[in-house]
Design a protein around this nucleic acid. Structure first.
Length: 262
DNA sequence: ATGGTAGTTTCACTA
């Protein structure tokens, strides 16, 4: 099973890019974030036309929104209202007996101080809830995958400059500590770093604001796929589709792809 | 230290 996660930054605007991803990488299952479409307007027919006939989505007006697109039937759909909010940051689907959770962690605003920045406080709360919630997911004997835009680049090699980003939201020690706590809570395995070792620099996001994203290459690895320990033995490969950042009218994130043995 | 771009509910908000 090939699983991809992608913050697509408006699903409707990027349907042509979704088609290109389906053609070039052929994921069996796709987790999307920032779909930015209410459920009534979800482009079901276009998505089904790409071969993803089974879908689960939670959308709202303008912001956020998550979706799981699948070639295989979806057995159960759930969502969780993290931090007591209905802001469409989570949807889960059971596919072939595997529970797949699609997550969109709050970005957290600009100021990395929860006392003055409510968005940053929300992000820290969300990551703490990810820890307590995901702890309870594991141990059920069922394989679990957590995938999405976690909006944190945890390793020094997950950013273009560890030193220059220490006080920049997405790479501050307090966020990294929270994300590490969530990972430890479920003993989650970072699937991508099983294949691309931590010594190797790796990004999944490049700002739109760069004059030339590829030349400056000031990226961050914000998008992650974590698998439950019992799934680690089924991992067969992982990649980040860097070239997608150069596609026409791109998202600022690129797809992250993980292969699991059947 | 600043400003840069993109998407959506636009002269404002989020990322």
């Amino acid at each position: 099973m090939r699983i991809a996660t992608w913050n697509i930054n408006s699903l409707r605007l990027r349907l042509p890019l979704l088609e290109r991803l389906a053609a070039e990488a052929a994921p069996d299952v796709l987790c999307l974030q920032e779909t930015k479409v209410v459920d009534d307007s979800f482009p079901r027919a276009a998505v089904a036309g790409l071969g993803y006939e089974h879908m689960a989505f939670r959308g709202m007006k303008s912001y956020n929104g998550v979706a799981i697109l699948s070639r295989r039937p979806i057995e159960i759909v759930e969502d969780r209202k993290f931090c007591g909010r209905e802001d469409c940051r989570h949807v889960a689907a059971r596919i072939d007996g595997l529970d797949l959770h699609c997550l969109y962690v709050p970005a957290g605003g600009d100021e990395p101080d929860p006392a003055v920045n409510d968005k940053f406080a929300h992000k820290l709360d969300f990551l703490d809830e990810m820890a307590s919630w995901s702890r309870s997911l594991n141990g059920g004997g069922r394989p679990v995958v957590l995938a999405g835009d976690f909006n944190v680049a945890p390793l020094e090699t997950d950013v273009w400059s560890h030193r220059q980003l220490l006080n920049v939201v997405s790479h501050t020690p307090v966020e990294v500590e929270r994300l590490d706590g969530a990972q430890a809570a479920g003993a989650w395995v970072d699937a991508v770093r099983r294949f691309i070792p931590p010594e190797v620099r790796l990004y999944s996001w490049w700002s739109y604001r760069a004059r030339d994203w590829a030349a400056s290459d000031r990226g961050r690895r914000l998008d992650h796929v974590w698998v439950s320990p019992d799934l680690a033995g089924r991992l067969r490969g992982a990649s980040v589709l860097r070239e997608a950042r150069g596609w026409e009218k791109p998202s600022d994130h690129v797809p992250v792809i993980v292969d699991l043995a059947a």
